[in-house]
Design a binder for these strands. Sequence first.
DNA 1: TTGAAAGCGCTAACAA
DNA 2: TTGTTAGCGCTTTCAA
Lengths: 344, 344
Amino acid sequence: MTLKDLAQLLGLSPTTVSRALNGFPEVAEATRRRVEAAAAAQGYRPNSQARRLATGRAMAIGHVIPLSTQHEMVNPVFADFIAGASAVYARAGYDMVLIAVADADQTRAYRALRAQGNVDGVIVHGPRAGDPRIALLTDLGLPFVVHGRASGVDLPYAHVDVNSARAFERATRFLLDLGHRRIALVNGLEEMDFALRRRRGYERALVERAIVPDPRLLISGEMTEAQGYDAARRLLARADPPSAFLTSSLLSAMGVRRALWDLGLEMGRDVSILTHDDELGYFRNGAEEPIFTATRASVRIAGRRCAELLLAQIATPGAPPVAELIEAVLVVGASTGPAPGAPP
Amino acid sequence: MTLKDLAQLLGLSPTTVSRALNGFPEVAEATRRRVEAAAAAQGYRPNSQARRLATGRAMAIGHVIPLSTQHEMVNPVFADFIAGASAVYARAGYDMVLIAVADADQTRAYRALRAQGNVDGVIVHGPRAGDPRIALLTDLGLPFVVHGRASGVDLPYAHVDVNSARAFERATRFLLDLGHRRIALVNGLEEMDFALRRRRGYERALVERAIVPDPRLLISGEMTEAQGYDAARRLLARADPPSAFLTSSLLSAMGVRRALWDLGLEMGRDVSILTHDDELGYFRNGAEEPIFTATRASVRIAGRRCAELLLAQIATPGAPPVAELIEAVLVVGASTGPAPGAPP
DNA sequence: TTGAAAGCGCTAACAA
DNA sequence: TTGTTAGCGCTTTCAA
């Protein structure tokens, strides 16, 4: 059933039918109703390819995932982001296209994306410090929003980021308030922008209390369980071991936990662990209540906002890029579940 | 730069240029070279919308995720699957479209998908027992491959599944070999087909050793940490507690672990835990070596195979549906990392 | 081996 | 308020 068929059936021109179905104001109310009824009865659906070609809009948003960050992508965080964004697209009638791009030929890949015109804009995932993609996309004139930020990029660009610095500053402060003075940071690879920011937040909190950050307490690497385990084993074997670990991921925290177990140490009594993940609400930290920061809930919000900003940017091409910072909630006294204020 | 532009530039007709670029045999070798050179020089990229409209193929695969399973989607497993599938699509020039479908109007949604024609086929995620989507898609004639299986569906349909039953049978047997007789199964919701199969595997292993499965040792629910914790607390408070827990997910296992901690029990001495997740290689189970089943690596393979099967099906519409079963490896003596035999 | 012409199914000026 | 007419950029008969 094509538009032409439907028009013929109704004794109208395809134009009128198109207008009726697309809510143009100049169509008589009676006609519109007739058309809508017929369309529903016939189960008519406009062919999206044809519409895309005619309008010149792809009605699709690309999510570009650098293949080098595949480890990152194979991450619950990514799924949360997607969940947030997809709801927005669905409402606006956009498709969501996942695009894996090899690091090697990014320039070519993005140029192709632009020229082929199968997306109206892209969301950039996993930005690095000084990420070249931002300049590239700006240059290409392809609308984009970055999930995260890229330190050292001077161009203005639209982005939505979780406030990693503040989250880690607050988390560190929380541990300081419990009396900890030697706090280890088990961080991600510092090429990743968020990891850099997390470290800055951590250091800010220490400096604020006149504690000189000890570089030996700083671990940076792939956020795996092995990383946490090795870090904890190594640091706890020192003469001046940390009394608390602040970790960047669930897996690292689990590794630290296993190290404690192996060493016969009790979590929350001998050593505290605090991590940046929703799922670790039960980690006791010397405080009476469990505590965690609500990354995942925040990331879902970030997904939603990224999508909204990108669609707005596509609708209004001239507007200056918008930036937003989502606060990651530090939750005390809650068990697992969405953070207060998070959407259901 | 359109095809027409390029043709004009070369003093050829659009037809010839199109043929040259698409590898038609009747083009003179010299012409083809000239055209290809010019295309490369001009950075020409065929507009995908136009091509799609002209050929009638969407060159896109939809991944349909039931919204009710969003919890499932917010799952590393999904990301692994995607990683496997996207490589296949990229090579074949297909786009990967994520489609979230509300449970309410599935019929309408799939019909629309078919009529709109913006995908050439779909991958069905998160099948339930007796899942109605299979009949619906078969009826619509939209090519599809199911990731997983749906018990109680009699139609033949293409699918790729990880052999959950066997994985859990082997895991259970492993615990039995260690001398365990009371083994709790902390399973997912049994509406999910994979959860059903996991239970069957578990029961099969018990029955094989003439142990009557104790329904009180069977937990089924959302695979959260709270689930594992509650289950373990409850079961370990009984007069006849289990000596081992077999869990369906990382989070559940963590919950069980926390319960042990709270009760002052030692894992691997007082109680063993075995789980179906790559990331838990360090769980000691009374055996000398850590052990785990490699779900994630298997799922990545499943993603690749699903994509390959779907593309094949689209290429050869008449062919009967193909089914494949991926064995989840039970790994003993390895630390975290890909399973032996898994692609790098 | 190449080209002319007719679509694919829709939208959007421009007329009426 | 409706219809006529041209495309959108490509592929694909059919003819040369």
